[in-house]
Structures are given as structure tokens and as C-alpha cells.
Amino acid sequence: MTTTDTYSAVWQRRTPRKRLLIWTGWVALVALFVWCWQLMTENTIWAFVTDAPRQAADIGARMWPLEWGYLPELMGPLWDTINIATLGTIGGVIMAVPVAFLAARNTTPSATILRPIALFIIVASRSINSLIWALLLVAIIGPGLLAGIVAIALRSIGFVGKLLYEAIEETDRRQIEAVRATGAGGLQVLTYGIVPQIMPAFWGISVFRWDINIRESTILGLVGAGGIGLKLNASINTLSWDEVAVILLLILGTVVVSEWVSAKLRRAII
């Protein structure tokens, strides 16, 4: 045994160089924040900002009393919105499944050509917001529900495709190897080795996306793609704040219900 005094009593987590770097980083971050704040407030008209509480109170007052008589008229558009979300999700999932299998490293038939194409489809779909998809589609196929459904479907491909291909890549290779060892063909390996492993992820992702799509489809009407957003737009344009309040409450209620359904379903699956 050696005596304890041959060992250093000082230990530090980081080297002095690293500590200096970290402090410089923090100082730079604060400087950036100050600079951004200046830039942001340069064009602000402070009179409006100080006036904000009064304006908000004013709109709030106009919302009251709520125009409950408007509610029956909203049921049709609400049903449209739910249909846009549901059909759009189904369409998106159907298109996303083959894309996911092409994009996953372990199932893609060609890593040099098809995989990059599949990844591009996923990125393209994800980079464009549903509202912008709807804007484009209203111009192409005209206003209405169909534009909304297609917009939701196209936006969902990327989300579902990405999460699903990650699930495919995370499958247990030993189970797949065992199925291959029985002499199974390519499609059989897929349906016996891979599909059972990704089923929980598949349903979880689909239900989660449906839940997101309910929220996204409520605003599609703003650009003419049908649903409750159309009513919202009309009420805002006529400054009928009592109607707007009813619509917002209805959307809130729908989203709460859809989240509850989605959580229940996912728990039942997993």
C-alpha cells in the first residue's frame, strides 16, 4: 500500500481551457440576446403595446355573451373537419408505408437510388406545412373538402414515414435472421420477421398523427379547404366575436376529445 499523500486531492470535471470556452459561450449568448431584443423592438410602436390589455379586454367583452344559437350551424363543418383529418390520415398512412420500407436501411431494395428518393419524399412532405399544402391544392383542385383531405394526407406522409422507417430500422435482427433461416421468401420475411415487430409502432404513430391532424384540419378552412375553419374565417371577417368564441370553444372541445381517444387507443395497443 502507498500512502494517501501521493495522490492528488484536486479533481476538476473540466480542463481550464474547456471552462474558458464555456464561459465565452455564455457571454456570447447573452450578447446575442441583447442584440436580438434591440432588433425586435426597433419597429415596435409602444403605444399599441401599452394599449394591448385594454384591446384584449374589449374583444373579450364583445365575446360575451356567447352566441350559443350558432352551435347547430357548426355541426356540419365540424363533421367535415373530422372527416378531413380521418380520411387524410388514412390516405397519408397508406402512402407512407411503402415509403418507409424503401427508406429503412434494412429493407430498402436499393440503397443508392430508391432510399435517397424515399428520404427526399419524407423531407419534402415534412418541410411544407399543411396550410401551405392546402393553399397549393385549393389552387390546383379547387376549394372544398378534397383539397383539405389531400393536404392532410401529403403532410402526413413525412411524419408517419419518418417514424415508421426508424421503427423498421430498430427491429430485432435475430428474429428476422431466424425467419430467413427457415427458407422464407422476401415477402414472408417481411410479414413474419418485421411486420409483427413494428405493429405497435405503426398503430401508435397512426393514431398520434390522426390526433395532430384533427388540430391541423381546423385551420384549413382559412384558405378555403373546407371544415370549421371556413366558419371561423367568416366570423372573424364580420367581427362577430361572440361567434368566434363559440367556434374556439368547440375546437378546444374536439381536440380534448381526440387527445383522449388517441391516448386510450395507444394504451390499448401497447
Binding site: R174, Q175, E177, A178, V179, Y192, P196, Q197
Partner: peptide, 10 residues
């Protein structure tokens, strides 16, 4: 196989 390699969810 060593760790059985059954398809667990079937």
C-alpha cells in the same frame, strides 16, 4: 438460436 429468436409478438 441462443436467445431463442422467436418472433416475440406472434
Amino acid at each position: 438460436f441462443q436467445e431463442y429468436a422467436l418472433v416475440e409478438r406472434l
